[in-house]
Design a binder for these strands. Sequence first.
DNA 1: AAATATTTTAATCATTTGATTAAAATATAA
DNA 2: TTATATTTTAATCAAATGATTAAAATATTT
Lengths: 210, 210
Amino acid sequence: MATSKGKKQLDQSTEEKIKAAARKVFHQKGYAATRTRDIAEESGINLALISYYFKSKENLYEIITLETVFKFMHNLAVVFHDESSSFDEKIEQLADRYIDFISKEPDIPLFILTAMRNNPVKFGDKIPLKTIVLESIFYQQFQEKLQEGNHADISPLQYLLNLVSLIIFPFVAKPVFQNITGTKDSQFHKMMQERKKLIPIWIKSMYSKP
Amino acid sequence: MATSKGKKQLDQSTEEKIKAAARKVFHQKGYAATRTRDIAEESGINLALISYYFKSKENLYEIITLETVFKFMHNLAVVFHDESSSFDEKIEQLADRYIDFISKEPDIPLFILTAMRNNPVKFGDKIPLKTIVLESIFYQQFQEKLQEGNHADISPLQYLLNLVSLIIFPFVAKPVFQNITGTKDSQFHKMMQERKKLIPIWIKSMYSKP
DNA sequence: AAATATTTTAATCATTTGATTAAAATATAA
DNA sequence: TTATATTTTAATCAAATGATTAAAATATTT
């Protein structure tokens, strides 16, 4: 089997070349709009190699999607389970990391959202999202905050939604936003950088007692 | 020509049947994953009628997309240009209207975001988004608020982003969110209804001086 | 070096898919 | 009613697309 141990440097390189190209094209155009020939061309390999190494387009897509979701969630896992940081520091970390991450990989949010919409069970079941979020130190610290009682009434789920919305949505809405406001890429980038500092402030004020 | 005046009730009905089916399938699966045969089947008409009435799949998609974006933006236009409501009331109106709208048409946000990502110029140029937002009474009232000076430093664009993010993103992230939290449809719906009241409060507190 | 295994290529298949066409059915006008 | 225009249908086309195959090229082992 090609994917087993018996392969040399060139072999792995080819397999990886295909994956890199597939990643790029799938992220940009989504599953249905991607042709296996696009991937072959993008990677500079022969069309038949895709079947040879990955059996089918769908299988390759599944591999890429799972890897992409894992990579995306990794930041979340790291921050949420950090024992040395406070609750507020975690908020700052999250904004900081994700704004940097998505700035570098702007197609990933829409790619993941679409994948999960089209196949919630398939991908949902293979990713330990519940564990990452609901059994995290972050979530623990959140409960403590609640009991201290120096916050406005908070639904933890609404809180989560707000945090994630403020971080991710601007990137997804970038084309619409730029069309409305005439904002150029450089300005947009500057705005996103500003949000690293602003989001933690906003979130805090949203939930501080009046 | 079929689309001109010379047609009777049955005719218009067929054309509208095709559009309704196309709307449904395009919204659900996007352009690339939609087959013209899907639309024919969904509408119960013959495949050839799609070409007969709309010339091509792409043309039909363009029509549906423009109509969808206009319908989506209509709420925005109405609220933003209302002369009788205050700034704060407009925020409440927006949350109220869009949460109801998207609850009924949950596929539209991702559909529009994807369409604008894939074809920013084509659709961007045909929709008077700039006028709706930047020349609105809402925007005017916003400037007045700024000059009153009883608000924290606000970038109008960041403000807009936050408002829209808090309203729309939870719907787009619904599959991911439900997977993580185990929230069922009815609970999710209840949460969104709560947000009608919460978002205006959050937004206000985000921008009130400390 | 010879034999064997692996990787890559070019050519080809079978389906799918968007679109067209010519004829049939139906409606409209004379 | 008859003639004309419009709408609908079934059949078909050509191109695109995912996948396969047999042979060629390259690497690995003996």
